[in-house]
Design a protein around this nucleic acid. Structure first.
Lengths: 222, 222, 222, 222
DNA sequence: GATGAATGAGGCTTCATTCAT
DNA sequence: TATGAATGAAGCCTCATTCAT
């Protein structure tokens, strides 16, 4: 807070950005607890004290790093690509779901180390927990509204609460990504996106008969 | 060096057990990083130095605490209750799934604080990660085999890989519990078990028509 | 290196004066040790680095602030008001002494915070100690000469060394002011001046019989 | 506070005492601000961390050192020596006052360095200021009661408030000692005690004619 | 003249671990 | 077996001072 207000010169902004980038890298590599302010300053190639010109504490820079990542993750998840033409609307829906999953899995994979550290830190920072909750909510709310629309149109079963269902299915993808990219279980990413898409769609009651072709999915995103 | 092998007197065993119990309590309350050996010794009402007669390090006692919990969680998940009679086999299947979820959610809830800490610690201990992986595998393997049986009997769709599917659905329940009990999002536990059960069954293709009654579930488990 | 000699532009003089004023205020409020160069620069509304264009160190500006105050204190102590007419020369003498005390107590009160800080700093700066010694000497010498005159005229006892006595009585007033205005013991300022005046006069042997009226003192100084 | 309750073994008590002694010595030599915990630990010949087993902070050990000294000073001031026989009661009174001053000056001299540091620190520690106030009060109250008795018996003038007078005269001695032993002005200690005694007595109105012999004072105390 | 960025020495404190009793 | 004293590495943070613009 003491530093938030200071308008910075170009040089100052550069140094600050170096620190943030360095912090992201070091946090991802060593985790929150094992990272010292010294490590960050070293990685940014500035003197120890310089760190404190821009941040009050290790926790503060971590919040910034975490917040940045959340925003990038949300942006990635919402950044729609053009949808190819489908004759069958259900097919299109499954395609959309699977594609969203693929996008998410890819951006998760690209940031897995840092995500893992944030996941860890969420437990001892209320502020971070709130940031994380908002990021989750942004995604879950969207899914929830989609489910509500499908229920209204009779495409999805009406006997599940859209809020619960959206949370559960979001949790499925989220945790699958965690297990895959953080804990290192071996899954193939396109196959995972296809499977998650089918499970998700069918769980809601969307008619997605066996043998559904998901091939065009990866084609479209390569 | 390693204290594991030393045979202990009755008094020694008592002291050791005190330490483990105290550690579980303190870790749950303060997290791994914030817990000091001093805290544990204090909580166990033994002198600081006594700790090191029984454990080589803070990490070692944590592994023991974590391992204990995993075993209890696995045991809870597998500890089958008698199944009521069902005329419809699909209904029975959904009932089994939902009940398993309920059992899991309840044992998760009862240990949420400690689970959270373990989840955290998994990231900086290979050994802990392995313990966690095994616990997950025990559950996922079982689910996988169940899916394989259902696929073989034509109850479940054959176009998803049972391994992927089992992982994904396990992840769904796991993460849902985490969000609910650790991060504190407000979900009602029986409703969650019912929803997760339906999503799980339908995702695989099990015919679970709308309005499926799950009432008997909570009856059976109260 | 030394900035004292540099001739300054009008703007420079203004900045320098701002720094000195700001320093006096901050030192008074926070003490020497707790005041940082940053605090001073902030209070003067100049950039951090600007400070070092005018002063070599925190100690240097403090010496200037302290020295300024000493000079003002000395000036106040010597700045004679017109003496009212007295028929009794002893009465006049007590009046003079009491009035000098009152003047001193008042100027002490008005600068108590800063005086306190200087008192503190005297201990770790030889230069400051010397300034302080000179200020004290200016006052003590005057008192000493007055005592010598009174002894010569047979008004005061001759069996005390004027130097010792002047020091002791000066110390009395000085320390009384410190206890009152710095440490915060509750004394009423006019009553204190009256008491100190009587004690001072009688200590030297000046005939100041009981019930000496000091009323005109406060009248004259209001 | 965290350490106050711990009962210490003999070895622990030894170490603690070493630290206190070392601290007194270092504080006296370097002042409060310039003394680091490291300095104290070094002087006590213990490891840095050992300090924190016994004290929470530099401030805490300083309070203990200061408090110890105050108690010793008070004890010295009150520790009465046998009074020689006097034919003249006024002479005896002056003798008592002068002797008290001499005792005080001597114990001040023996601890001047540390007293100076405490005087300094009083300004930024409320707790210390309170300790100091109590020590002063103990002395002033005694003097005040003595003055009241003398006024009642008609030995002292009744037109000064005993509380003000006691404070003022106490301040005189206190500050004289400070100037002499801390700031280093050159005064001879027995002569100072004699002068202070005469000034004190005469200030109150005690009849102490010129040429009062104080010789027996130093004889009695050597 | 003024700015604010950068430096790095130095202080405080914690705590996992070892040791003497 | 238990105790609690001792250790010292390691981390966080401040701030007087210098430097480039």
């Amino acid at each position: 807070m003491s530093h938030a207000a200071a308008p910075l010169t170009a040089r100052g902004q550069r140094t600050r950005a170096q620190l943030v980038a360095a912090a992201a890298s070091v946090f991802a590599r060593k985790g929150y607890g094992e990272t010292s302010v010294n490590d960050i300053a070293d990685a940014a190639a500035v003197a120890h004290g310089t760190f404190y010109r821009y941040f009050d504490s290790k926790e503060q820079i971590f919040r910034e790093v975490a917040s940045d990542l959340q925003h990038r993750m949300i942006a990635a998840r919402f950044d729609d690509e053009p949808t190819p033409e489908f004759s069958d609307p259900n097919e299109e829906m499954v395609w959309r779901i699977a594609r969203a999953n693929l996008v998410f899995l890819r951006s998760y994979r690209d940031n897995a180390d840092l995500i893992a550290v944030i996941e860890q830190a969420v437990l001892f920072s209320d502020e971070l927990r709130e940031i994380r909750r908002l990021a989750r909510a942004a995604f879950v709310d969207r899914a929830q509204r989609a489910i509500e629309r499908m229920q209204a149109r009779g495409i999805a079963y009406n006997d599940v609460d859209p809020h619960y269902a959206a949370h559960a299915l979001g949790a499925m993808v989220d945790r699958f990504a965690y297990v895959t990219f953080v804990l290192g279980d071996a899954f193939e990413i396109e196959e995972a996106a296809r499977t998650l898409g089918l499970l998700w769609a069918r769980a809601l009651g969307i008619d997605a008969p066996e043998g559904f072709p998901i091939q065009r999915l990866s084609d479209a995103l390569t």
